[in-house]
């Protein structure tokens, strides 16, 4: 371990003028308010409280790391619940003037619901979710606010499996399926023809 003397000798050799300044004292310009050192601990505690209050907005630890899994889990849970309640097949008639399309199978209804949802997004945008706080059907997203969950799902639709989207009841959209024009429906079917199987075709036509 170097001794103080060695450190000073090194300085004297390197720079006599800096050695001289140091020897005469370099602390003269340092003025510390009276009693400052007695208050450091309390000042720190005040500062810490202030900082902690600033960042304390009641977000559980790891919330942002786990939100995706939490949403998926809730959706899955809801989906299973819904599956047990929903009848296997449902008939919906969509009438528009002289044209009539008869749907009597759930898988296609699913696709239509998605189409309607996406269509609704395009038309209404996220304002719908900002203004509509009464979608009781998504109460299961316990710790996540409705707006937050819907906004998240809306913004990340591509990350969800079809089945997961269907698990969510976008009440307004499903209710309004009957208002989809046949042109819109045809257009959707045309764009998603690859997703339809023979059974679907046989049931549509």
């Amino acid at each position: 371990m170097e001794k103080r003397k060695e450190i000073l000798n090194e300085l004297e050799e390197l720079s006599p003028i800096l050695f001289k300044i140091k020897a005469e004292g370099t602390d003269k310009n340092i003025v510390v308010p009276n009693g400052y050192f007695d208050s450091v601990e309390n000042q720190f505690l005040d500062r810490r409280m202030q900082v902690e209050n600033e960042i304390d907005i009641d977000i559980p630890t790891d919330y942002f790391d786990n939100i995706e899994s939490a949403v998926f889990a809730k959706i899955k849970e809801r989906e299973i619940e819904e599956e047990s309640k929903t009848p296997k097949r449902k008939i919906i008639n969509i009438s528009r003037g002289r044209e009539r399309v008869r749907l009597s199978f759930l898988p296609l209804l699913t696709k239509i619901a998605i189409a309607a949802t996406l269509f609704f997004f395009f038309i209404k945008g996220t304002d719908y979710f900002k203004s509509n706080q009464s979608i009781e059907e998504i109460d299961y997203l316990a710790s996540i606010s409705k707006t937050e969950a819907l906004n998240y799902i809306a913004a990340n639709t591509h990350e969800f499996e079809t089945e997961q989207l269907v698990g969510i009841e976008f009440t307004e959209e499903i209710k309004n399926v009957e208002e989809i024009t046949s042109e819109e429906l045809n257009s959707y079917l045309y764009e998603n023809i690859n997703e339809l199987n023979e059974e679907d075709f046989s049931e549509i036509f």
Binding site: D27, N29, I30, V31, V32, P33, Y36, F37, V40, E41, Q43, F44, R47, R48, V51
Partner: peptide, 28 residues
């Protein structure tokens, strides 16, 4: 450590207020 650290910090900044700010940030 408050005194040692304060005087160390005070070599970087010439006024007390700045030194106190840095010391508090250091402890935080």
């Amino acid at each position: 450590y408050k005194k040692q650290l304060y005087y160390h910090i005070r070599r970087y900044v010439s006024n007390h207020e700045d030194a106190n700010d840095i010391l508090q940030n250091t402890f935080l």
